[in-house]
Computed example of a mutant assay.
Amino acid sequence: MGAMISLIAVLVIILAALVGSMAGLQYVFGVILPYTGFIILLVGFVFRVLDWAKSPVPFRIPTTAGQEFSLPWIKQAKLDNPSTTMGVLGRMAFEILAFRSLFRNTKAELRSGNLIYGPAKWLWLFALAFHWAFFIIAVRHLRLFMEPVPGFVEWLDKLDSIMQIGTPPLYITDVLLIAGVTFLLLRRLMSPRIRYISLPADYFPLFLILAIATTGILMRFFIRTDIVGVKEILVGLATFHPVMPDGIGPIFFIHATLVSVLMAYFPFSKLMHLGGVFLSPTRNMANNNRMVRHVNPWNYPVKIHTYDEYEDEFRDLMKGAGIPVERE
């Protein structure tokens, strides 16, 4: 049910962009909507990160997945249980760039009445491919927003299309993105356990990203679009001098609308793990509890009433009640 609702929502977005662009609303779907989506993304992203940053961390709670720092002759797991800032940086780097914790993840299955644990490397592989392909595609698209095109973008574009198949060349990241998002979507649809806990919010970004990738491939290989006019639009957006040349087909406005919706949806969804991973206290804190006392910086200043002050205040009453006192 959740998958059907999300699919219908994406199809409605596509239909609205198609009808709107054919009805003469190209400026709305090609200029106003992208600006709106980008502003919502920027403001929402900053707001949520700042809101998380203000959250108190009353305890030092790093995830420990190995031997902590102990005696000199006991080997420490410096990445899984770091006790220094450099160890934390190494752990965060492996987590962000290589999804190390997902690589170590296991799955549990009930077979013949027995609970069997096994590796889940396919999930790690497709998730890593999906995220890196999405990032490279986003960077590669800078060539449409900038003039002249930076050298690193041209280098990345050539490297991505090094296995040239046909004309225009097929990008490796296009294939990886489609494969990755398809695997993640089928995993939610085919596994009864995952499907049971999945909500429309879990399906919607997958269908949305799949639609973005599909319309981009259609626009590149099958429904030819005036790339000069498209770059004129995008450079105008980037320089805050929007233009809307003639001859741009509806497929571009569908693609732009889907991307705009993704940007606007991003800060309010689980996709915000992009910013949240940097603020996770279970990952960004060193496990040095035995070496350094952790004091919560958000602690409210509480007036302390010591025992000596308590005894000075109630000494006579305590003596009268037969309660021993430390000082006469």
Rank of each mutant, 00 (worst) to 15 (best):
T167H: 11
A98E: 06
Y310E: 06
K75G: 05
D246V: 15
G320L: 12
L89K: 12
S83Q: 14
G322S: 07
R187F: 00
R140M: 11
W132N: 05
T63D: 07
V49G: 09
V228K: 06
S70P: 03
L176D: 00
V302K: 15
S83A: 15
F69Y: 13
A129H: 02
D308C: 04
P297Q: 01
E311R: 13
M190E: 09
F29G: 03
I39L: 06
K54W: 12
P82Q: 12
L279T: 11
P168Q: 04
S55K: 14
I212V: 08
P297N: 03
A201Y: 12
H255L: 00
E154A: 10
W132V: 06
L115F: 13
V325W: 10
L176W: 02
G87F: 08
G20A: 04
I136S: 10
P250H: 06
N114D: 12
V295L: 08
T84W: 05
S83I: 15
L42W: 15
F183Q: 00
I212F: 00
A120D: 02
I209M: 11
D80P: 02
G216D: 04
D51H: 15
S198Q: 10
I227V: 14
P62A: 08
I304F: 11
F38H: 03
I39G: 01
A211I: 00
L71N: 05
D160P: 10
M219Y: 05
A3D: 03
T85G: 07
T182A: 06
D316L: 14
A138I: 14
N288I: 15
L110W: 14
L102Y: 07
P169V: 02
K319G: 04
S269V: 05
L79C: 11
L237N: 02
L18E: 08
A238E: 05
T63L: 13
A138K: 04
V149N: 08
F135W: 13
E313C: 12
